[in-house]
Every structure is written in C-alpha cells, then in structure tokens.
Design a protein around this nucleic acid. Sequence first.
DNA 1: ATAATACTTAGCAATGGGGCTAAGTATCGG
DNA 2: CCGATACTTAGCCCCATTGCTAAGTATTAT
Lengths: 113, 113
Amino acid sequence: MSKYESHLDLCFSALGDPTRRMILQRLARGKASVSELAACHDMALPSFMAHLKKLETAGLITSAKQGRTRICQLSPDAFAPAKDWLSEQSDIWEGRLDRFDTYIETLLQEDDT
Amino acid sequence: MSKYESHLDLCFSALGDPTRRMILQRLARGKASVSELAACHDMALPSFMAHLKKLETAGLITSAKQGRTRICQLSPDAFAPAKDWLSEQSDIWEGRLDRFDTYIETLLQEDDT
DNA sequence: ATAATACTTAGCAATGGGGCTAAGTATCGG
DNA sequence: CCGATACTTAGCCCCATTGCTAAGTATTAT
C-alpha cells in the first residue's frame, strides 16, 4: 500500500497540507527559487525542502538546478488529474435521478436518530 | 497546526487514500449501509469505519442510523471546495502571460543540469 | 428471553509524516 | 584560493495514520 501508491494518492495527499498549497499558490504566479519560496515560511530549510520534494514526487511541480540555485515551477496541467477525478464523481452524483429525493428522504429520517 | 486544520486539509487528505476514494465512488451511485460499503474491502470493520469517519469529518459524506444500521451518502456539493481551490489555481496559472515562454525557457535550461 | 446482527469502543503495533540540528557539497564573488 | 551562499544529506524525535483483535452495545428476529 505504500510501494504502489497511485498518482492520485500522491497528488491529493500533497494537496492536504497548507504549506504545500501555499507553495502551489505562489508558483501559480510564476517560478521561483527554493530560498524565495522558503522565505515566507517559518521553517528550517530541510523541512521545507521535504515539502517541495513531495510536490515534485506528486508531479505537481518540476524543478531544475541553475548553478547553486534550484528553480521551481508548477507542472503544466498539474491539477488536471485531481480535477478530473473530482469532476467525474460530481458528474455521476449529479446524474442520479433520485439524487434530490434521496437527500430529502434522509433529512426526514434524521428525526428518528 | 493540527487543531485548526482547515476544511481543505481534511478534504484533500481524505481524498488521498484509495480506500476512501473507492467509498466515494460507490456512494456517488447511491447511499449504502456500512456493511454494504465494507463488503468489497478486505479489511476489518473497525479499520473500515475509521475511513468512513474521516470522510464524514471532512464533510464529504453524511451518515445516520436507522435501527442498528448506519446509512451513508455523499454530502451534497461534497467536492465543491476541493474543485474550487483547484480551479482557482488553474485560472491563475493559465492567466499568466508568460506561462508558455516560462516553460519553454526552463526546458532549454535543463540542458545545463 | 435469547440469539443473531450491525455496528462501536478500547487498546495495541507498525509505519509514515513533518519538524529539528548538524554537517556536507557545490557554486559564485572577490 | 577563500569565504559566503544555496542547497543537500544524515540522523533523530514525536505524533498521527492505518491496520489489527477483543469485547461491548443496541436492534431485530424467533
């Protein structure tokens, strides 16, 4: 369960941390070096780098070294897999004919709890 | 950092597990009892229930007891917060004028690595 | 009343996530 | 060449996650 983690596992898990989402928000506005990114996070550099590594492993960002500096940026279509999965589920849910009835029905049943 | 976890943290973290995504996929097709949901997962019931609890804490599903049976279903708009966050980031990314140039530039720079 | 069913609670073990410091490597500037 | 800069690696700590079993509770069926 840890060796064959799917891309979606990695992707959603990576998104489940506020530090990492903030990094992504910053990178959506343009590429940046590790230390530029780290500047506004009150965290030791190795800890911060671990977050970058998770984002890269999840395919959400890419990075490359220029001299002693590492430049990071969002992967093109970084969010597509996550968005696609979510949309798929929403579509199935919204396509259900009895969706609304089911919900009302349950609201009523909650009185019995 | 663990007491004030945002809704998005809980939501994305919940989505980062294949068992939990399978539960959501099943529930997108209609509500079901705990044992119905558990049937196709090779896992002890308490372990399985822990997954349901995470989904409920994240606001992705709701559940209510009918007699000795607990019925689960997707929350209406369960995926909206996650989808909205992702769309927001994508929009910012796609709105960047230098997006394409930036990417090409980096591809070229990778030769130096 | 009893037994079966459907969870539920309690408690434990293994693992991984997320933080740290200290020390190492690889440029760059002078 | 030497010091400063920008990561990078190694190793440790603590707590959360994810699985388990065993035992408990609440309904339903007989």
